[in-house]
Amino acid sequence: MDTPLLLFLGVSAIVIMTPGQDTALSLRNTMAGGRSAGIATAAGVATGQLIWAVSAALGLVAILAAADTLFAAIKYAGAAYLIFLGIQSLKAALRGTVQKAGRDDLGAIDCLSTTKAFTQGIVSNLGNPKMAIFFASLLPQFVPQEAPAFAAMMGLGVVFCAMTLLWLSFYAFCVTWAGQFLQRPKVRRYVDGITGMALIGLGLRVSLLDK
């Protein structure tokens, strides 16, 4: 394995493992729908990243960066969505209620389907234009000069997305493993409250993003 690829893997691992909106959303959805919802959220996030990677490879991100109105629209829509999800978590924390839908790997769970969890993952990621700028600035640095630019950037993008899927899925398994503890009413309220505040804070941060 050559040095540029190792460096790319190292940088990607640091970025992916740093807690952010994807981590907070995965925690929220795993708590709400069990391991399957957590993995579905991870798949949604990775799909959103793949779309940004394709856009970066095709040069479409440059259009986004140049179009102030489009950039702002995506930014504020994504921020509003994160804040909305955060408010939902805060409401659950304040009410201290959990809608029981049977038993799953986390015990008594809410009615969050894998389809809804996947949709939330992809919408959350696509609503963060920072990811577009990130892919457009990161991937070209690791493309060999002799390699076809599109194919090389897509290859790196797929690797990044696969690493994200694996990490967030592992995170979902860890949350599930601690399921009995996390589903204690008092603990659940604390987790919902912290997750809600984190999502709202991340939404506000996204709204303040500059190019």
Rank of each mutant, 00 (worst) to 15 (best):
94 L>T: 11
172 A>P: 03
45 V>Q: 11
89 S>Q: 15
187 V>C: 04
51 I>R: 02
24 A>D: 04
5 L>Q: 08
102 G>P: 04
81 Y>L: 09
39 I>E: 13
186 K>A: 09
202 L>M: 15
167 W>D: 00
194 I>Y: 04
91 K>C: 13
199 L>R: 04
145 Q>L: 14
128 N>Y: 00
80 A>C: 10
117 A>P: 04
137 S>E: 07
53 A>T: 12
161 C>T: 15
95 R>V: 14
154 M>V: 09
153 M>T: 01
86 G>I: 06
209 L>S: 12
80 A>M: 05
208 L>E: 14
138 L>W: 03
190 Y>C: 13
22 D>Q: 15
137 S>I: 05
82 L>H: 01
32 A>V: 00
148 P>F: 03
105 D>A: 14
179 G>S: 12
45 V>F: 06
61 V>E: 01
115 T>D: 11
201 G>S: 13
3 T>E: 13
121 G>H: 05
150 F>M: 12
178 A>C: 13
111 C>D: 11
86 G>P: 08
109 I>P: 00
48 G>W: 07
134 F>V: 05
150 F>G: 00
107 G>Y: 05
27 L>G: 07
203 G>P: 04
121 G>N: 12
201 G>H: 13
116 K>R: 10
145 Q>A: 12
191 V>F: 14
180 Q>C: 08
128 N>I: 01
156 L>W: 13
188 R>S: 08
175 V>N: 02
205 R>E: 11
184 R>G: 05
88 Q>L: 12
47 T>Q: 11
55 S>M: 13
15 V>G: 00
100 K>W: 02
187 V>K: 06
95 R>N: 15
123 V>Y: 02
203 G>V: 06
42 A>V: 11
194 I>R: 00
124 S>G: 03
201 G>M: 12
56 A>L: 10
128 N>R: 04
132 A>L: 04
74 I>H: 01
3 T>G: 11
78 G>Y: 02
22 D>T: 15
4 P>T: 10
118 F>C: 01
63 I>S: 07
75 K>D: 09
91 K>H: 14
21 Q>H: 14
88 Q>C: 06
96 G>F: 09
118 F>H: 03
17 M>K: 06
150 F>R: 01
12 S>K: 05
5 L>H: 08
159 V>R: 08
41 T>E: 11
23 T>V: 13
158 V>D: 10
116 K>E: 04
18 T>P: 02
109 I>C: 08
57 A>E: 02
